[in-house]
Design a protein around this nucleic acid. Structure first.
Length: 901
RNA sequence: AGGGCUAUAGCCAAGCGGUAAGGCAUCUGGUUUUGAUCCAGUCAUGCGUAGGUUCGAAUCCUGCUAGCCCUGCCA
């Protein structure tokens, strides 16, 4: 038998190399095959509910790293809570309606819209959306989530839609839903509203006119404020003129006429009207001009000057003709100044009675007549024609216009106070979140919830014969029930009368003629009712304990959820809100294909492994924007190796552990110290999990593993573990401590690197379950021994000094490894006494000889001590201490025992 | 333009009015039986920038710069 065979060197199947990229998939399959989630849920069945409501990503396209971070953060929480006494009921969701899906189908030429009925088209959309959901789900699961992807919600689910309709019914009941006008892109040629994506820009020749509006204040009684427009047909819809609040304006005189316009645009104005001679009469700041009354250039009506941030000095006069029915900015300004939204165009592009004498004219035809009239009335300052980029219908290739159409709105004004109250009741984990959302709610206009599209949840409104909407919750709930049974396609497949309760009558429909609304709801409404749809259908609380989304969702989902929640339930749908930042490249710039700085989760999972991506997520300050790059991921991999090797060392040295248990007080001093430190690590880590400060967990673990375990405890206990026999008590105590460390650290890391920690756990012979996910988080034992802690803090400081001396001896080539050293510490009586209180001092310093000498001055001497080496433990001894086989007494005894057995 | 966030070494970061933690990486030196290697030393008179308040500022105030999120029938 060779001596090295008598040493108990570590052995474990838990390999040094992780090979995550190949093995993670198998691990995940194993979890699903063995129903880990179901088992975990069974264990948690009667525990307290902790609902983290998943905000649904949009079901289109590949996942980006932001999606991945979002779900990984949630998974940390789901996993942690499920191992900490909570019933988490994980349901992941998808947002499945909306224009991008319609576009994806149309653009890829997959469907010929003209040949499909609405119902057929919607079925295609559904098919596509469900496929996207499956793709994305697969990508999500490759991140190693606790969920197995079985429990999901989709905004196209029948039950989901039904609940959405019921929430809408409640909003109707509360009286906050109303019909109003809002301008949208409108194509007269196809008589429909268009989405931005359906608009293409081509060159078009348009009249460009300067128009003077008479100012009605005494001070400016002979002055005309000058606007510039390329759409003369919108002049009949004019409701005022906007100027920029920060610009300077001048009254100038040209051939006895006075005009008001932005000072910096005088030159270009003169050039356009072929004038050179002018003089400045007066100069004004914008605020002086606000609210000055104006006379409409065509009609006998008054308007006034408004201030608007959308006004620019890039073209025109710095004075913008404002027709709220025919322009987006104009519409927004109209809300601020409470001026009417008037549309002078019908669906075919023909002027309506609101256009007065121009009624019946096609809008383009009206241009020239209006210009003539302006000329006659002395308001047309100049007319030219320009060629510019102008929006066209992508199908008919004909020009489109902005036109105010009937839209459904939810009045925010009426519930603003309730919303703000609800906000203040929420726990905003990013403290500024409250300010951000409140400001948005304070400043936001009514919510336009209708869209002129097909792929979405229909607005469940039936109109009477007289054309009035039936705003009756009973009717709406009937429709909801219908949707629950048959899905919302029923709306598109059936006539209005079939959608009403059987035998339904209405005084306004004596002939039982009804029509139905054709608009669908804004997709924000869809996802915004997740709180109700998911909770009602899955039998859980309405109010989520937590929502966790990207910072863009203050305007998005946090916002829409709040509104629908407050209206339907009277309080916010979430108790706490946590938001994460966006992921940028290594310079902090946004990722984009053109810059080539995009990193996809797929790449990371394939090149590094999901655990590396997860560890990265846990290592950064995710509440602000974060940076990712290959360099950063490589660094995370180093940390990963550290953890993995730590687990490996523990497993390797637990091979001989027979599960002996010791009371804290029975343990040796240093073991107690380590357990106290471990206890604090557990406490800090659990606190960090509770407050979602995941990077603190890693920091705590890093420090413990590096400074306490790796460089101290693990270092010197090798001389116990490798050398002492299996039944040696000192060894067993150390093993007991290692066992505590292993199980605690592995559990603490489980939510963050589940693949690795479960792999380690499966190599641990005392596991209670096959999967660590079925274990509970470690508990804080409350170990304390102030004396011991003090002693070791002081010892570790002195150890640093001793190590320095040893190093210095090495540099002088006086010694090699530390076991070749003899150390003499000369120090004050107090220090010597203190050091004498420490057991195993020499062992912990990993030297062959240690002497403590009382002296006036502190000094550390290191000399070479290489008398006779024991061939087994490699410590050096005096000749008298070593036997003829070159073994020390202790080793000789051990070998004898081994041979006897 | 406005609302919100961020800025500390090559990287991840602590610090929250008392004189810049920790980890990773690098470099230097040493040790090593695959005994996870380990150890020592090195590494910001400096906290985006310019001012101000203070006995004292990375921390408080003001201006500026840069990046990010929001104001889409994108999420």
């Amino acid at each position: 038998m060779e001596i090295k065979d008598t040493l108990l060197t570590p052995k474990t199947k838990f390999s040094m190399k992780a090979n995550l990229t190949n093995r993670e998939k198998n691990f995940q399959k194993d979890w699903i095959d063995n129903q880990v989630l179901e088992q975990r849920e069974k264990l948690n069945k009667n525990k307290k509910e902790f609902i983290l409501l998943d905000g649904p990503p949009y079901a289109n396209g590949e996942l980006h790293v932001g999606h991945a971070m979002n779900k990984i953060l949630k998974d940390f929480i789901w996993r942690y809570k499920s191992m900490s006494g909570y019933n988490t009921q994980i349901i992941i969701g998808w947002d499945t309606h909306g224009l991008p899906i319609e576009n994806a189908l149309l653009k890829k030429g997959k469907v010929k819209r003209d040949k499909l009925t609405d119902v057929e088209f919607r079925q295609k959309c559904e098919e596509y959306a469900l496929k996207q959901v499956e793709n994305q789900k697969e990508s999500f699961l490759s991140l190693g989530l606790l969920t197995n992807g079985q429990k999901v919600y989709k905004t196209l689910d029948k039950k989901y839609e039904a609940e959405q309709i019921r929430v809408f019914g409640q909003m109707i009941d509360k009286g906050i839903v109303y019909k109003g006008l809002k301008p949208v892109y409108w194509s007269p040629s196809s008589q429909s509203a268009l989405a931005e994506a359906e608009v293409e820009y081509y060159d078009k020749e348009s009249p460009a006119i300067y128009v003077g509006f008479d100012m009605l204040s005494e001070k400016f009684c002979d002055v005309q404020i000058v606007i510039w427009t390329t759409t003369p047909w919108t002049i009949p819809a004019n409701q005022g003129v906007c100027i920029g609040p920060n610009f300077e304006y001048s009254v100038i005189e040209i051939s006895n006429k006075k005009y008001l316009l932005a000072t910096s645009l005088i030159d270009s104005f003169l050039k356009d009207i072929n004038q050179t001679e002018y003089k400045i009469v007066s100069i004004h700041i914008a605020s002086e001009l606000e609210n000055i009354e104006l006379k409409h250039p065509l009609f006998d009506q008054k308007s006034f000057i408004m201030l608007g941030n959308h006004v620019t000095l890039e073209a025109g006069t710095g004075c913008v003709h404002t027709a709220p029915g025919h322009g987006e900015d104009d519409f927004i300004i109209s809300k601020k100044y409470h001026i009417p939204v008037i549309s002078v165009i019908d669906a075919k592009g023909v002027m309506t009675s609101d256009a007065g004498i121009y009624e019946g004219l096609f809008y383009e035809k009206a241009n020239s007549i209006i210009c003539e009239d302006l000329e006659k009335k002395n308001h047309l300052i100049n007319l030219t024609f320009i060629t510019h980029q102008y929006p066209h219908d992508w199908r008919t290739k004909k020009p489109i216009i902005y036109r105010a159409t009937d839209q459904w709105f939810a009045s925010i004004k009426k519930i603003k106070k309730d919303l703000l109250d609800a906000i203040s009741d929420v726990n905003w984990i990013n403290t500024w979140g409250e300010v951000r959302l409140s400001n948005m709610i304070k400043g936001r206009d009514d919510w336009c919830i209708s869209r002129q599209r097909k792929w979405g949840v229909p607005i469940p409104i039936i109109y009477t014969e007289e054309g009035n909407p039936i705003l009756d919750q009973v009717v709406i709930n009937h429709i909801a029930d219908l949707f629950e049974k048959e899905g919302s396609n029923v709306w598109f497949g059936k006539d209005a009368i079939e959608l009403l309760p059987i035998g339904y009558t209405h005084v306004e429909s004596p002939n039982s003629i009804f029509t139905k609304e054709t608009d669908i709801m804004d997709v924000w409404f869809d996802s915004g009712v997740a709180h109700s749809s998911v909770s009602k259908n899955k039998m859980r609380s309405y109010q989520a304990d937590l929502v966790l989304e990207g910072s863009d969702q203050y305007r998005g989902w946090f916002n829409s959820s709040l509104i629908t929640g407050v209206v339907s339930q009277g309080k916010a749908p979430y108790k706490s809100v946590l938001s994460h930042g966006f992921i940028n490249d290594n310079k902090g710039n946004k990722m984009s294909k053109s810059l080539g700085n995009v990193i996809t989760p797929k790449e990371v999972v394939n090149n590094h492994g999901a655990d590396i991506l997860r560890l990265w997520v846990a290592s950064v300050d995710y509440q602000s924007d974060v940076k990712i790059s290959n360099q950063i991921l490589d660094q995370v991999s180093e940390t990963y190796k550290k953890y993995r090797n730590c687990m490996r060392f523990l497993l390797g040295n637990l091979q001989n552990y027979q599960n002996q248990k010791f009371e804290f007080n029975e343990l040796d001093q240093v073991d107690q110290y380590i357990l106290i430190e471990l206890d604090q690590v557990i406490e800090k880590s659990l606190n960090a999990y509770e407050s979602y400060e995941f990077k603190n967990i890693l920091q705590t673990l890093n420090t413990f593993i590096t400074n306490i375990l790796s460089s101290f405890y693990f270092d010197f206990i090798k001389d116990i573990l490798y050398i002492q026999e299996v039944d040696n008590v000192r060894r067993q105590k150390v093993e007991f401590v290692l066992n505590q460390i292993f199980i605690s650290l592995t559990k603490l890391l489980t939510p963050i690197i589940p693949h690795t920690s479960n792999e380690a756990y499966q190599n641990y012979q005392y596991n209670n379950q096959k999967f660590i996910f079925l274990e509970e988080m470690p508990e804080v034992k409350g170990y304390k021994n102030i004396e011991t802690s003090k002693l070791f803090t002081s010892f570790l400081d002195n150890r640093d000094l001793i190590n320095k001396e040893i190093e210095s001896a090495r540099e002088q080539k006086r010694i090699g490894k530390s076991l070749e050293a003899k150390v003499i510490i000369k120090a004050s009586k107090d220090l010597i006494n203190q050091l004498n209180q420490i057991d195993e001092l020499q062992l912990m310093l990993i030297v062959s000889k240690l002497e403590l000498v009382q002296a006036d001055h502190f000094s550390i001497e290191v000399t070479k001590y290489t008398e006779h080496r024991c061939e087994r433990c490699w410590k050096y001894y005096l000749e008298t201490e070593i036997n003829q086989n070159n073994l020390c007494d202790s080793c000789e005894c051990i070998i004898k025992n081994i041979i006897e057995r």
